[in-house]
Amino acid sequence: MDMTIIFDPRDPAIRTDPYPIYRRLMETDPIHRSHFGYWVLSRYDDVDAVLRAPGVSSEFYRNTTWADRRGGLDSPLVRSVRSWMLMLDGPAHRRIRSVISKVFTRASVERLRPRIAAETHRLLDAVGDGETDLIDSLALPLPVTVTCELLGFPTHDRDQCRRWTEHISRVIDPSITIEDTADMNTAEVEFREYVTDQLEQRRAAPRDDILSLLLHTEVDGVRLTDHEIIANVLFLFVAGHETTVNLIGNGLLALLRHPDQLRMLRENPKMITDSMDEITRYDPPVQIVSRLLTDNVALQDVTLPEGAKVMLLFGAASRDPARYADPDRLDLTRTGIRTLAFSGGPHYCIGAALGKLETAMVLTELLRRYSKIELAGENLAWRPNVSFRGLQELPLRLTR
């Protein structure tokens, strides 16, 4: 078998419709040794096992090739990533997560509901009837506004924060270019300068926001350093913004392509919140993450060796027929869902509940306002990032 043609993250088909490729991997080579040096895992049980195994590291910056492609270990971007909660293991990860988790409790997220609702109403009031690009008019501005609100950043800075975030988010993408690396590092320097200024303002006069909390909260008597705070503010924008934008766009597209399921939500709007796990499973906003093995990890058929680089295909695992019956069908009555779309184990996404709340509120308001929601075109363009799967545009025709 010619392994080189089975999985290549640079393949344009991975962006437009990766699921036939994922299915081929699961059926023919589920523990695939790729030509670029990674083990690529597509089955649900294998992906889940690696996420939870003790001999697995998220500190991918320790891989020289990975770091060099992003500017080198001492580049602005990689220096930042080295302090991201996402990219840390063990005590270092737990220390930062214990501070940030204070913000993302169930009660804290629920307190955001009125603000999310108000911003959703404001954005849809501006949309009105007729044709619109839902990504540009709603899905992009909403989560960045919510994140700015959490951190206490001025809302008039949200567009600039969004532009920085879109560049920096390419850091985990396996298919970056030299130009991407330059843009990511430039964006990191500019965003860092902005957050540094905001941090100095909080130091002089604390406020009721995350930035002040991060500045003054102690873990075992030790506060986060300014570098750690700034790095994880950038991470919060990347994680919260990119995931939610894609969840809104992918979720609505899936419903439009399954009109029976959309009709079910119209008739039973109280189902929307409970439907989020299935919507997330069907077309996950995060498709690919990578791990380094610090010990041997035994899977069903193979023991992966210490030192291996592993690529986990969340999108494939979410469509594994061994885990989900008829996995290529959106079924909002499906039960027993344990999606890996927000990762798993110690690195389960701390903001998953917030992203699902934002998406549920958007869907609720769209269905309340509009009697008909239609695609205004079928030639959809997907964003170039293959780790985060999302639409560049979602052209809609909205009728009250």
Rank of each mutant, 00 (worst) to 15 (best):
D2F: 13
D2H: 12
M3L: 15
M3P: 01
D8M: 11
I14G: 05
Y22F: 14
E27D: 11
R33Q: 08
S34Y: 10
F36S: 03
G37D: 09
S42K: 02
Y44K: 03
D48S: 13
L51F: 13
R52V: 10
R52C: 12
S58T: 10
E59M: 14
F60K: 09
R62C: 11
R62Y: 14
N63A: 11
T64S: 13
D74G: 06
D74Y: 08
S75Q: 05
P76S: 15
R79W: 03
W84K: 01
M85F: 06
M85C: 03
M87P: 00
G90K: 11
R97G: 04
S98D: 10
F104T: 08
T105H: 14
R111V: 09
P114D: 15
A117F: 02
R122N: 06
L123D: 03
L124E: 04
E131S: 14
D133E: 06
L138E: 06
C148K: 04
C148N: 09
P154A: 14
H156T: 15
H156M: 13
C161M: 15
R162C: 12
W164I: 01
R170S: 15
S175N: 15
T177A: 05
I178T: 14
T181L: 04
T186Q: 04
F191L: 02
Q198N: 05
R202I: 12
R203Y: 08
D209P: 13
I210N: 00
D220F: 13
L224P: 00
E228G: 00
F237Y: 13
H241G: 01
E242D: 12
T243K: 09
I248E: 02
G251Q: 10
L253V: 08
L256N: 04
D260Q: 11
D260L: 10
Q261T: 03
L262N: 03
R263V: 09
M264P: 03
L265I: 10
L265A: 07
R266K: 07
T273N: 09
R281A: 02
D283F: 03
D283Y: 07
P285I: 04
V286K: 01
S290K: 09
L293F: 12
D295E: 15
A298F: 10
G315D: 04
A316I: 03
R319N: 08
P327I: 10
T335F: 14
G336R: 13
G344E: 12
G345S: 13
P346A: 07
P346E: 04
K356W: 02
R369I: 13
R369K: 12
E374T: 14
E374K: 14
G377P: 07
G377V: 07
N379S: 14
L380Q: 07
L391T: 02
L396A: 02
